[in-house]
């Protein structure tokens, strides 16, 4: 984090505003439980929360890794086979816009409450932004550089590695900002729809038990996880692109 002060300010301002709202408006805890109450849940249920968080994180990361492998494969294919993108694009868009709550119930019926359906939901949600960014990034490769490599009789693969891939890296990293955090949300939604474990499941459970305090606690944990992932991507981005600031 480059600017710890503003970050810390926000970190303090949120619970402060929260507590202030409670003093001023005295909402029913069913709508807005006080921070202390939520903190209490976070502390007493910490081990269960951690366990469910790891479940969600595992699904998100694994699904995201799969999405990356697919997206990279697809992008490579599109790069090597001219016109492939135009043929694939409508199908990918269709795939992307599949209303996954409906797909989810089919998936869980076919595959049971296993890792599979959750991974598929994560892949469905994250695959497309990665691929779109990769394709876009690969196209920004310098045509003059590519011409020069062609006069060296570079192979298509070498052109990909030496010219197109470096050009696509900033786009690829930018995709992670959206897609990696998206993978967490996707995993949570999948669990919310049909799982028996994970943060998404805890959300359903807490809301059916009218435990707004736990609902807030789980939401808080999910936000922190998403923020950490976002920070991680930022860190990776700064590391990989440090030449830009040289």
């Amino acid at each position: 984090m480059k600017a710890p002060l503003p970050f810390l300010l926000v970190l303090l301002a949120v619970p402060a505003a929260w507590q202030l709202a409670i003093w001023c408006f005295e909402p029913k805890p069913a709508f807005l439980p006080p921070p202390a109450m939520v903190a209490g849940v976070l502390w007493t249920e910490r081990s269960a929360l951690l366990g469910h968080t790891l479940v969600t994180l595992g699904e998100a990361v694994l699904g995201y890794a799969i999405a990356n492998v697919f997206a990279l494969g697809c992008a490579l294919f599109c790069f090597h086979v001219g016109g492939a993108e135009r043929v694939l694009a409508p199908w990918l868009v269709a795939l992307k816009n599949v209303p996954f709550p409906t797909v989810a119930s089919i998936l869980v019926v076919v595959m049971g409450d296993s890792l599979g359906p959750k991974l598929i939901v994560v892949v469905l949600v994250t695959f497309f932004p990665i691929l779109a960014n990769l394709n876009k990034g690969l196209k920004t490769a310098d045509p003059v550089l590519i011409d020069r490599l062609r006069t060296l009789h570079a192979t298509r693969w070498q052109i990909f590695r030496k010219a197109a891939w470096p050009a696509a890296i900033p786009f690829y990293l930018a995709a992670h900002e959206i897609a990696f955090t998206g993978s967490i949300i996707a995993a949570i939604v999948a669990e919310w729809l049909f799982a028996q474990r994970g943060l998404g499941f805890l959300i359903v459970q807490a809301s059916t038990q009218f435990r707004t305090d736990r609902l807030f606690a789980v939401t808080l944990v999910a936000s922190v996880v998403a923020m950490l992932v976002y920070g991680l991507v930022g860190l990776a981005e700064r590391r990989v692109l440090r030449w830009q600031r040289a």
């Binding site: 249920e45 269960a48 366990g51 469910h52 479940v55 499941f201 736990r214």
Partner: peptide, 16 residues
């Protein structure tokens, strides 16, 4: 990371 988190011991379903 995936392996790590997959190895994280899964909690029993619904046990507040």
């Amino acid at each position: 990371a995936a392996l790590l988190s997959a190895c994280g011991r899964a909690p029993p379903p619904a046990a507040p």
